[in-house]
Design a protein around this nucleic acid. Structure first.
Lengths: 360, 360
DNA sequence: CTCAAAAATGTGTGCGCACACGCAAATTTT
DNA sequence: AAAATTTGCGTGTGCGCACACATTTTTGAG
């Protein structure tokens, strides 16, 4: 049972005072070079590790973190990210991190900008947000950089800036994965469809990345000779139109036996799929939202790919915590695991979304 | 921005001293009933939450946890659990948890018993171990219970005892999952084989549970009409014999198109599978060991099911931490997530595992 | 060589809590 | 009724560290 090494022990051994050791450890200067060297040597010798408890306690400064997120009530995906943020906030509360969420309208760049200005005015010690709108996000990032406010960006990456870290989904790879899963259930000569149920697909970078990934799987030696079709459909909220669309799709492509729904709207496809095709066409979709889960249980959706959004929010805050409080280096880019969900293992992942571990 | 409530604040508001508040909070007695009531009321009123940092710091007592594990160098599975234990140990070190591993010989019950006795003699504050041998484990559990030492058991459950919690794998459900995965890649009328590559399969409870789960999937309306075959083979370390066995299997069952290898030895099957069958027979196996990973990359293994052993060790320690330091309630039974691994998402899971060793 | 400014180092306080100790009032014992 | 307990409560100290401030030593200009 080795007792732990304290600053005091180092001071004794190095023949200096604790104040000097402290200055060395924090690189605060005002220490003679040879003394510094000596202290560092002793630190190394005794294998000193700062007691984070005492450190955080003594530091006694509350960092204020602002999290700028889309309104959670209006979107279940962002609701989950919000949950993760709250969860992390609770876990780090006692370590002097105060997390305050702010909300913007998911569809209003100018609202994002307005909130961003408020946020800067509030002078937080750290910032978490998804750079949804390019111009507005850029402005926010630049301003933060000028003012030396560490930023963690989530969900969407943005070029040419250097936030503290990025935590997000790997869209390309999730496309590859989707292809792999469908492929396993197909036989030679069949056809699959990449289906984008989105308004303005052209602008949605992540959907395009998923398509790229999906195609690359088959291009680089998928197991089967399979034709790939891509369809965009915007009126997905109108069941009649969607049904008509799917009817057309299946009749004009009788060999169609797999659909890769590139976002969380797989349940809408199931709703409107012609009777004849049900069961014949394999479905791979995204996200553990309730309507998808129901169809997963009913064996109508075959696979759901999940990149735990709760974890995304959670990790975002934890990274700020590590940076600000623990003063640790953090990884610049962190992709979330690509979880493959079927009926038989969904329960574990749902539980994970609720009870998250505090792991420091 | 509410500042946090301290014991001092409660003392002020209740018109008593901090010492009294402390006695109330810790139920240490020596407090007049009406005073206690008043204090509790104020605690509630102000929404006091103990500052865990300061609490742990002031508590200043190191709990000693002993973890009795199979020797990690001799088995990559236990090595990973060991890693998880070490990782958790590091995380909770500063909170006054000292974790010391002890090792026993995986195949020697008497060694387990000897170590168990040493361990009891050492009077630890908490205990983590897999109850590998029934009699010996029972003795250890009973003794701990007498001495009020909290125990966390991992990997294997044991009847009729009440440890603090059990953390382990859900064998039955992993069998169901294996069936689901194979099923997706099959067509009607094909045949699948449950393959136990183990010495003394009859005694291996977890293998039998996997079989039960596997069969139950097809019994309860799997998608296809599929025949199920079960084979046990013990000489899996002799490539010639295994090849012969597989050759026989495939020729006598030409419709065989899927093998569910119930443990981590899927790679051995791949090694010895007849040329003609390669690619025709889908393989689902277990565990992210190196030799399996190679074949996963080469598309020879289709799916690996993983129940992260690192997490098992990690959670074991974390639960003791929660119980001893945070004084929180912990869940009695905790199953690990069933992760589905393919080439396209393996990387994320490997990163979680920190290190992996050469396979058996 | 002198003296003030700058650099280097030491000392002291407090973060929030747990717990030992000590003192007074209430209660029991003789 | 005095002595011996017991009960209820307040005070003080220390956990390991960060940081402000006090003190000593060094430096450099005149």
């Amino acid at each position: 049972m080795k007792k732990r090494v304290r600053i005091k022990d180092i001071a004794n051994r190095a023949g200096v005072s604790t104040g000097t050791v402290d200055r060395v450890l924090h690189n605060r200067g005002s220490v003679a070079p040879e003394v510094k060297k000596k202290v560092l040597q002793v630190v190394d010798e005794l294998g000193y590790e700062r007691n984070r408890l005492a450190s955080a306690l003594a530091y006694n400064k509350a960092f204020r973190i602002l999290a700028l997120l889309p309104e959670p009530e209006k979107d279940s995906y962002w609701k989950q990210i919000h949950n993760g943020v709250q969860k992390a906030a609770k876990a780090v509360k006692h370590y002097g991190l105060l997390v305050e969420p702010m909300y913007f309208d998911l569809f209003q760049p100018q609202d994002f900008h307005a909130k961003a200005q408020q946020l800067i005015a509030a002078q937080p010690d750290g910032l978490l947000f998804p750079p949804m709108f390019y111009e507005e996000a850029k402005w926010l990032l630049d301003t933060c950089q000028q003012q030396n406010i560490p930023q963690v960006i989530i969900n969407t990456s943005i070029e040419g800036n250097h936030p503290l870290c990025y935590i997000g989904q790997d869209s390309y790879q999730s496309g590859v994965l989707g292809a792999r899963l469908l492929d396993f259930g197909l036989t030679d000569g069949q056809m699959v469809c990449i289906l984008n149920l989105e308004v303005g697909t052209k602008a949605a970078h992540h959907l395009l990345d998923k398509e790229k990934g999906f195609r690359s799987y088959f291009a680089n030696g998928g197991n089967k000779e399979v034709d790939i079709l891509r369809k965009d459909f915007e009126a997905f909220n109108d069941p009649a139109k969607l049904s008509e669309f799917l009817q057309n799709l299946t009749t004009s492509h009788p060999r169609l036996s797999g659909i890769f729904v590139t976002n969380s709207r797989a349940h809408k496809v199931i709703n409107c799929l012609p009777e004849a095709s049900a069961g014949e066409i394999k479905i791979v979709g995204f996200d553990l939202i309730e309507s998808n889960l129901r169809y997963l249980q009913e064996d109508k959706i075959n696979f759901l790919i999940n990149q735990n959004p709760v974890e995304q929010g959670y990790l975002g805050i934890i990274n700020l915590f590590k940076h600000l409080v623990l003063k640790e280096e953090v990884e610049r880019t962190q992709y979330l695991p690509l979880d493959i969900i079927v009926k038989e293992n969904v329960e574990y992942y749902l539980r994970k979304q609720l009870t998250f571990e505090m792991a420091l």
